[in-house]
């Protein structure tokens, strides 16, 4: 935990510097008759972030913040595995949306999470993997009229969704 505290402070400090440089692309000083330039607000906020990171690092050095004195691991092995499975499968689902759309990636995600990770029965898994995309379609596309991404495979939308739109929209 102690090591992670200083790593995070350094990473956030570097991000703050990056933000200051990015903000300075616009005027950060005073423009006559216009007031503060467009970059002033984020620039000084980023400067504030940097000061906070230095302060956090100082507290780490002084061992005054709880994480800086903690001997616990930031993430033990079981926690790391859970994190990788949960966050990784979520990232994969979002990535697959680009390729096969929401209605392809959601059932795959559900089958993985429920069947392989959760060890739930095939019946429950297939029931949820089928009903949730249908519920999403009727709620978002039919009721709210929000078109959800169908992915880059063009025929999926043409063959499956165009007829559905004809019926329900």
């Amino acid at each position: 935990m102690r090591r992670m505290e200083i790593i995070m402070a350094i990473v956030m400090g570097l991000c703050s510097i990056g933000l200051m440089i990015k903000s300075a692309e616009l005027e950060i000083g005073w423009i006559p008759d216009e007031g503060p330039g467009g970059g002033a607000f984020p620039f000084w906020l980023a400067a504030g972030m940097l000061v906070c990171c230095i302060w956090i690092a100082f507290n780490w050095w002084q061992r005054t913040s709880p994480p800086s004195t903690s001997v616990e691991a930031f993430m033990d092995r079981p926690a790391l595995i859970l994190f990788i499975i949960a966050a990784g499968s979520l990232a994969l689902m979002i990535g697959l949306v680009h390729l096969i759309g929401i209605y392809g990636s959601v059932p795959i995600f559900l089958v993985f999470y429920l069947r392989l990770f959760g060890n739930h029965s095939l019946r429950l898994t297939s029931a949820l993997a089928l009903t949730i995309p249908v519920a999403i379609f009727f709620f978002f596309e039919v009721t709210l009229k929000i078109t959800l991404p169908k992915g880059s495979i063009e025929w999926i939308e043409r063959v499956i969704f165009f007829p559905l739109y004809e019926i329900f929209l």
Binding site: A86, I102, L110
Partner: peptide, 14 residues
Amino acid sequence: FTILAPVIFILCVV
């Protein structure tokens, strides 16, 4: 929680 979590993740994405 292995049922609730994926449902909430999907709700978050949509």
